[in-house]
């Protein structure tokens, strides 16, 4: 479970503080798959970064008792001038896993071929996503924080991805931001609607989707 206690987050702009959340208190389950729905700019990605502890709230506390992934999905975490293998090596080291095994695994999983040793900035966004997904599968988290499941390549890779994803779902859960109703319906057991800096929990996914459509 991830506990948010009195979380306040704002950004300073020229017009003063822009609040994303004010005094947000909520328990997010990590033993089930959680979907987060909200309009563009509602603060979904900020919420995910706060849950992942990649960004500290201005006030309040975030606590969790499980191993959480880094917030995945946008290209962050990779340095463009370095190769895929270099980036894998770095991530392996900071998570304390064997980097040789990691490079082998990701090479095999993401099928990047010789691109593995070329700078990330030469990658397509699909290749970048495959690299990130592959690495996160290798590190093995209890709960994956995913900002939009990326469109990841051709049908051959998609089959493979779906298969790994299926295995992943057996041992791990995820907290998922998605605009795709089909994805949310297929994966999530619980949905949080994010609106006006407030989180509302719905255990009935269809009801949440219905409300989301009206937002």
């Amino acid at each position: 479970m991830i506990q948010l206690q009195g979380v306040t987050k704002y950004y300073r702009t020229n017009d003063g503080r822009h609040y994303v959340f004010r005094d947000l208190t909520e328990d997010i389950p990590t033993d089930r798959n959680v979907g987060i729905l909200g309009r563009n700019g509602a603060g979904k990605s900020t919420l995910l970064r706060i849950l992942a502890k990649a960004e500290a709230p201005n006030r309040g506390m975030v606590r969790s008792n499980v191993r959480l992934s880094w917030p995945m999905g946008f290209s962050g975490g990779f340095q463009g001038s370095m190769s895929g293998a270099d980036n894998i090596r770095f991530i392996a080291r900071i998570y304390g896993v064997n980097w040789r095994d990691a490079v082998d695994f990701v090479q095999d999983f993401a099928e990047l071929g010789e691109y593995m040793h070329m700078p990330i900035k030469t990658y397509s966004s699909g290749m970048r996503a495959r690299l990130a997904v592959g690495m996160s599968f290798f590190v093995k988290f209890d709960c994956y924080l995913i900002d939009e499941i990326p469109g990841v390549g051709d049908s051959r890779f998609r089959r493979r991805f779906t298969q790994s994803f299926g295995e992943l779902k057996k041992r791990s859960t995820m907290i998922l931001i998605s605009h795709s109703e089909a994805t949310i319906r297929k994966i999530c057991d619980v949905v949080f609607l994010l609106n006006d800096g407030r989180l509302e929990r719905y255990d009935d996914v269809d009801e949440a989707l219905r409300l989301y459509r009206q937002m």
Binding site: A52, K53, A54, L68, P71, S75, G76, G77, I91, I94
Partner: peptide
Amino acid sequence: NRSLLLFPQV
């Protein structure tokens, strides 16, 4: 190195 701050331990 801003992109690395995404990792909570960095």
